[in-house]
């Protein structure tokens, strides 16, 4: 372990926060689905990959600007999420947890291999000049596409937060997440709420895919890279906790990036998983989690 100088430390904190925004957005979709339906969605990563490919193909085939393609990837992923929930998840809602887990895992393998078959394992990138710009503030470099991704991630999160807090539909989703039977008693259509929650969760990760495509590569197995971290974020922030996922994403992003300044190689992951284990041991409901009943 060697001690980094101040410029390196500042740089790593800034890049950590920027990446953290993307982690948050991925984790929010995951935590929403878990909070409402108590299902861990293992297909989350492959759905993110679909979001990335949507953006990639819209640009390559029709010249649509990657950020404009949010207008497509969000609804596409939303509808896809609805369909997956309706036709694949609903039948196993009352099945044992491991069946649900295997189903989402199977779905992720199916989507990834389909993508492999359709689009080959090639690594693709969006080669657009303005995506290769970076601004320098003092000694800190800020990559333009990462900055944009960060702000959009915050914006979408704020929007979603408002929706859940202040609209009837949002309240219904939260009610279903807090108290299943109670929600049924007051006449909330749980099936529709589940559908909606899964759709929104998928739309979130689709948006995260679109926002990452400009600074990352696109490939059928790319989703796993982000989603593994997102699982840690979800546990960190409390399973099903919206604010926890947002703050957790930022903290994990910074921990990973600053970890790289101190430790070599794989060890930067050490910090993340160390936090992960500590949380599981001492505060399994997560930093922001409510005590389970």
């Amino acid at each position: 372990m060697n001690f980094p100088g101040l410029p390196l430390l500042l740089q790593s904190i800034v890049s950590g926060i920027l990446m953290g925004g993307v982690y948050s957005l991925v984790a929010i979709g995951l935590t929403l689905i878990f909070g409402v339906m108590q299902i861990i969605n293992f297909a989350h990563g492959s759905l993110m990959m679909l979001g990335m490919f949507t953006t990639y193909w819209l640009y390559v085939l029709m010249g649509v600007d990657p950020y404009l393609s949010l207008l497509f990837s969000i609804p596409i992923c939303f509808v896809l999420g609805l369909l997956i929930e309706r036709f694949l998840i609903t039948p196993v809602l009352d099945a044992p947890a491991h069946n649900q887990l295997l189903l989402t895992l199977g779905l992720s393998l199916f989507i990834e291999n389909l993508a492999l078959f359709l689009w080959s394992p090639n690594f693709r990138t969006l080669d657009i000049p303005y995506l290769q710009t970076a601004v320098t503030v003092g000694t800190v470099m800020i990559s333009f596409p990462k900055l944009v991704a960060f702000f959009f991630a915050l914006l979408l999160t704020a929007f979603l937060y408002y929706f859940l807090k202040n609209t009837d539909l949002g309240k219904a989703i939260r009610a279903a997440s807090m108290e299943r039977e109670g929600a049924l008693t007051v006449g909330i259509n749980l099936r529709w709420v589940y559908c909606l929650a899964f759709g929104i969760g998928t739309a979130c990760v689709g948006a995260a895919g679109t926002l990452s495509a400009p600074f990352f590569y696109v490939n059928p197995s790319v989703g796993g890279i982000f989603v593994i971290t997102a699982y840690v974020v979800v546990v960190f922030g409390g399973m099903g906790n919206f604010i926890g996922a947002l703050v957790g994403g930022l903290i994990i992003g910074v921990a990973e990036s600053v970890g790289a300044a101190f430790f070599p190689g794989q060890l930067k992951k050490f910090i993340i998983y160390f936090i992960f284990i500590l949380i599981l041991l001492f505060k399994p409901e997560g930093i922001f989690g409510r005590r389970s009943e």
């Binding site: 390196l8 070599p264 992951k269």
Partner: peptide
Amino acid sequence: SVSYGIGTPDITTEISKIKG
């Protein structure tokens, strides 16, 4: 020398290190 793991989502810190 600076090393990083496979599947790293962001490599900015490592490259800042090597630049330094």
